[in-house]
Write a protein that binds this DNA or RNA. Structure first.
Length: 267
DNA sequence: GTTCTAGAAC
DNA sequence: GTTCTAGAAC
């Protein structure tokens, strides 16, 4: 992965090491639980500091070179960049063979690191498109292709229904199409925000986005305040519209549908 | 995006 | 007292 200054990776705040030259090749994907874009290399560079913040993890080995660099730079600590590093996690993941499920010359498909359902893929264009804001009519063939490969991978799970769509205000850099099974059976599905991001109008179906681009020639991310309104929507089952008062109850309720569908497919 | 946790809700 | 979540920190 080549370093791209547009994404302004942030040195870990506790690490004094700053580097104004260039970032070496990034050998790891974000699955290795540290900031792949950090100048200091993430927590491997600062094991003692890392364990201070995250005592339940332990550093694999002390990186003495990095500690020395940090010491040399200790009087020259730059303010961390505003753009937070985690937002660039997808860029690292789509470069890592371990993360890639499928790819072609236009797109890369990865598994969501924190799947919100039994199957949850992300289709990312190789073209540097940061978000739906950057789309225009020239991207229509790409958007159609992204959905087509998404449909293809969904077909590998014939007992599951899938949703294909984009978040109206995405957190991660690089346009990504969610391909997610509608069971929403996952330990990583925890919060109201998770739920509402897939079951309210915050989730723009792939077909809808394509129609919007065809019609208007562009699409616009929603405002933070509108996003918050949608995230605060009361919890409602996406299948039977039943209202649930909290996430544990909602997740328990989802079991009803899972059992019902399991029964139906076994008939 | 996730983790963590204070304090709200029960 | 326990469960749950919102918001800050990362």
């Amino acid at each position: 992965m080549n370093f791209n200054y547009n994404y302004a990776p942030t040195p870990a705040p506790w690490c004094g090491y700053t580097n104004s030259v260039s970032l070496p090749n990034i050998p790891h994907c974000w699955h290795h639980s540290y900031n792949p874009a950090c100048f200091c290399g993430g927590w491997e560079c600062c094991p003692e500091q890392y364990s201070q913040y995250y005592s339940h993890y332990s550093a694999p080995y002390p990186n003495t070179d990095a500690m020395k660099r940090r010491s040399e730079n200790s009087n020259n600590v730059e303010e961390p960049a505003k753009k937070t590093f985690w937002a660039a996690g997808l860029l690292a993941a789509m470069e890592d063979p371990q993360c890639i499920v499928k790819q072609d010359d236009k797109i890369v498909i990865i598994q969501d690191k924190y799947p919100k359902a039994e199957f949850h893929y992300l289709v990312l264009p190789r073209e540097d498109i940061s978000s739906i804001n950057k789309l225009n009519r020239e991207h229509l063939p790409l958007l159609e292709h992204m959905e087509a490969v998404g449909q293809e991978i969904a077909k590998e799970h014939p007992n599951h229904k899938f949703q294909f769509g984009y978040h109206a205000l995405a957190s991660m850099i690089r346009l990504h199409l969610h391909v997610i099974s509608d069971d929403f059976n996952s330990l990583s599905l925890k919060t109201k925000k998770h739920w509402n991001s897939f079951t309210t109008s915050f989730f723009i179906s792939s077909q809808d986005l394509i129609e919007i681009i065809k019609r208007d020639g562009k699409a616009k991310e929603i405002s933070r305040s509108h996003a918050k309104e949608l995230m605060d929507t009361p919890l409602k089952c996406h299948k039977c519209k039943m209202m649930l008062s909290n996430m544990p109850k909602l997740k328990q309720h989802l079991l009803v549908h899972r059992l019902k569908e399991k029964h139906a497919t076994e008939k």
